[in-house]
């Protein structure tokens, strides 16, 4: 286990002890809720983890470097952002998925674009958003989110 994971374990452990000491019932109740949410995602989590194995094994790193590497960065970033907008997978499993792509040589710029649009832009949830907030709001928010996701991605690429 790396140092950060250990750090998170310690912090979480302390919080948990304090929480149980303060109100055991309340803690258990919200744990039940979180358990329900996790259970719902379990199928997807396992699927993505298995998919990562396939990607790492079957797609040669040169191919990933070709398509998601330093060359034609702008196109690959816009495509990644688009894929992120359409896809509906829990952010929870998106991190290992994106991590595996970077491990085999993808640039972080398209990776960041994908991560950001994945949660912030919702093509699938668009009808729902329009119904609640109106067309103008939904279009503006999603379009700007897409734009900023690309900007954040390139800024990360420049800084890191």
């Amino acid at each position: 286990m790396d140092i950060f994971t250990v750090f998170f374990w310690i912090i979480t452990g302390i919080f948990l002890v304090v929480s149980i000491k303060k109100d055991k019932n309340k803690t258990l109740k919200s744990m039940k809720m979180a358990k329900g949410m996790m259970k719902n995602m379990l199928g997807q989590i396992i699927a993505i983890l298995l998919l990562i194995g396939l990607i790492v094994t079957m797609i040669p790193p040169e191919k990933i470097q070709d398509y998601l590497g330093k060359s034609n960065l702008f196109i690959s970033t816009v495509i990644s952002a688009t894929v992120g907008s359409i896809t509906l997978i829990p952010a929870f499993v998106a991190f290992p998925l994106v991590g595996s792509f970077i491990d085999v040589g993808a640039s972080i710029v398209p990776a960041v674009a994908f991560l950001t649009t994945l949660t912030m832009v919702g093509v699938v949830t668009f009808p729902l958003e329009r119904q609640e907030f109106g067309l103008r709001f939904a279009v503006t928010r999603n379009a700007l989110s897409f734009l900023f996701a690309v900007i954040i991605a390139f800024a990360m690429g420049v800084i890191l």
Binding site: W9, A34, L50, G53, M58
Partner: peptide
């Protein structure tokens, strides 16, 4: 492929309890 997946599964198992407990708290 299974072997490669297992690496990510074990990484995931290390962080999942943290995410789970933090969400609850």
């Amino acid at each position: 492929s299974v072997k490669n997946s297992m690496y990510y599964v074990s990484e995931m198992l290390q962080i999942m309890p943290v995410v789970f407990v933090l969400t609850s708290i």
